[in-house]
């Protein structure tokens, strides 16, 4: 008898817990309920931190808005990005997409492309930076290239996995300058590249400079150039490859997007909130404290970058054979 009583209580408690999640929809102005945001990377990474940062400051500029972030890192991010694209375009499901969106479709990993989304804002676009040991004999891009020409295949360049963005940056570098280096993959990410470069196990890397800033500031590493259209605020004294006459632009971006076809007015509300957020000083400070240099590409500007990179990677995957 007592056993039955206990199980009845337990069932009732569970039923009560389960129903608390159900809330009825209101009919007020947008947003009238919580907005779900799907981040296709795991919690704590660059994409996650920058998306959550942007959303925190957007809430302050959007009356009644509350964003709930869910992380879905399955399939290297494909699942999460596909979930956003397939969600109902009612403005209550948004998502983050990353530069890999423009690469997966050429690697046969997914059919998803940038034109299935409406861009809201892009808070982060980290350039590839050429970083070497501080005591290395080369002090500029040209000297480094000359060294590579004299010692073919001898320079070991770290990347974050074969066919991933920093590896592609290395291929583009080789193609542009007609040199050849050894590609050494560190699939667990840039922290491992930083350790290997600082420990002298590899000679150089082309990667997001933010993971290397502590070593650069301490004087154990130096940065020779960045693959961006403008100099980065992280390293204002370092020239871009553009300035040297080589149009290499490789950037790891993440953008907040909505599934295509959401009402224009609501999209505008989101874009304005994102603009106000990214232009505020406290938001900039938050990003900088995390070692991220914030950018503020809103709406069509962000969409343009997603499109440009799509075209660039189409060419990259047509001309470079990654299978060797």
């Amino acid at each position: 008898m007592r056993k039955k009583f206990v199980s009845v209580i337990l069932c009732a408690a569970m039923a009560a817990i389960m129903t608390t999640g159900c809330v009825t929809k209101g009919n007020d102005v947008y947003p009238s309920e919580d907005i779900e945001v799907i981040v296709p990377k795991s919690a704590g990474g660059g994409t996650d931190i920058s998306t959550r940062g942007l959303l925190t400051y957007m809430e302050k500029n959007m009356e009644g808005a509350k964003f709930n972030v869910t992380n879905n890192a399955d399939g290297g991010g494909i699942t999460g990005m596909a979930a956003t694209a397939n969600a109902e375009a009612d403005g209550y499901t948004l998502g983050a997409v990353t530069v890999e969106l423009d690469m997966f479709c050429f690697q046969g990993k997914s059919d998803l492309t940038y034109d299935e989304f409406d861009a809201i804002a892009m808070p982060i676009a980290a350039p590839a930076a050429l970083i070497v040991q501080a005591d290395a004999p080369y002090n500029s891009i040209d000297e480094f290239v000359a060294y590579c020409q004299e010692n073919p295949e001898a320079i070991q360049v770290g990347n974050s996995g074969s066919g991933a963005i920093w590896d592609i940056a290395t291929y583009l570098f080789e193609q542009e300058y007609g040199v050849s280096v050894t590609h050494v993959p560190y699939p667990n990410g840039t922290a491992d590249i930083a350790a290997a470069l600082t420990g002298g196990h590899i000679d150089a890397t082309l990667a997001d400079p933010s993971s290397f800033m502590t070593q650069i500031e301490a004087g154990s590493l130096k940065c020779l150039g960045v693959m961006a259209s403008e100099r980065t605020n992280l390293l204002p004294d370092v020239p871009t490859f553009m300035e040297e006459g080589h149009g290499l632009v490789v950037r790891a971006w993440a953008a907040l997007v909505a599934p295509k076809g959401m009402p224009e007015e609501e999209l505008q509300t989101l874009r304005e909130a994102a603009k106000a957020a990214l232009e505020s000083e406290e938001c900039k400070e938050y990003f900088q404290a995390q070692g991220i240099e914030p950018v503020a590409y809103i709406g069509d500007d962000a969409y343009q970058i997603m499109k440009e990179d799509y075209e660039m990677y189409r060419q990259v995957f047509e001309t470079i054979d990654f299978s060797e």
Binding site: A218, A289, Q290
Partner: peptide
């Protein structure tokens, strides 16, 4: 990440 937000920059 938490230390960097507080203005403490780990490193050498």
């Amino acid at each position: 990440g938490a230390l960097m937000v507080q203005g403490i920059a780990p490193g050498p």
